[in-house]
Design a protein around this nucleic acid. Sequence first.
DNA 1: CGGAATCCGTTCCGATACTG
DNA 2: CAGTATCGGAACGGATTCCG
Lengths: 121, 121
Amino acid sequence: MNVPDQVSEGLAICQLRDVLDRVGDKWSVLIMAILGDGPRRYSELRRSIDGISQRMLTLTLRSLERDGLVIRTVTPSTPPRVDYELTPVGHTLSTEVGSLIKWSEQHREYISMSRRTFDAE
Amino acid sequence: MNVPDQVSEGLAICQLRDVLDRVGDKWSVLIMAILGDGPRRYSELRRSIDGISQRMLTLTLRSLERDGLVIRTVTPSTPPRVDYELTPVGHTLSTEVGSLIKWSEQHREYISMSRRTFDAE
DNA sequence: CGGAATCCGTTCCGATACTG
DNA sequence: CAGTATCGGAACGGATTCCG
């Protein structure tokens, strides 16, 4: 991966931090994974993601929209309707996340076994 | 990506959460990126990662060791010497992280531009 | 050198209540 | 339906001190 000696001064790593802050929070990837299947309404997202509060759903969607990863479309009807969908760039990140999901599926057992072994001491 | 309706009840997503919790914290990937280049001593890691506290370096390394991603080797000399290196599984995760780094390099400009546009309102 | 332990501010985020 | 606003507990993590 060719990491410079003073890593945090390397530009690549600063960028990495940005992405990890973007992707590493509690709900972002979950939302991106769902939107990877296609557009969803606000209420659909809420029902799909068990345990998310209204507050965090809104905050996370705003943040994704701000970063150009999600598009928000308001239909001013009564009741109002809001749809969310991935942007093209959002889709590419969603793909990266998918590869992380595969990794986690393949190594889940190894990790939980490692933890049990480690905790046994 | 084929995500089930009730996402959080899907096993895949729970695993994903595990990995993101693993990788998403402040220092883990940084450390894994450095160790991807080869083994390092505790003091080398400390110098390499600008801004990390002794506490967080130790905690993060312990957690990586617990998950079977890093191996800790103690040489009981005076002064003592401790080396850290990736396990084979640790290397595979390090590779995944590398792909995320690439993504972040390619879209950094897009994201910061999106933010400026969004914040202009 | 490589930690462990404590203290403590900040940030995160869930619960709740209210709104157009 | 799709938010916004406020509060308060919990967790994260930095600074400091002490130790074999």
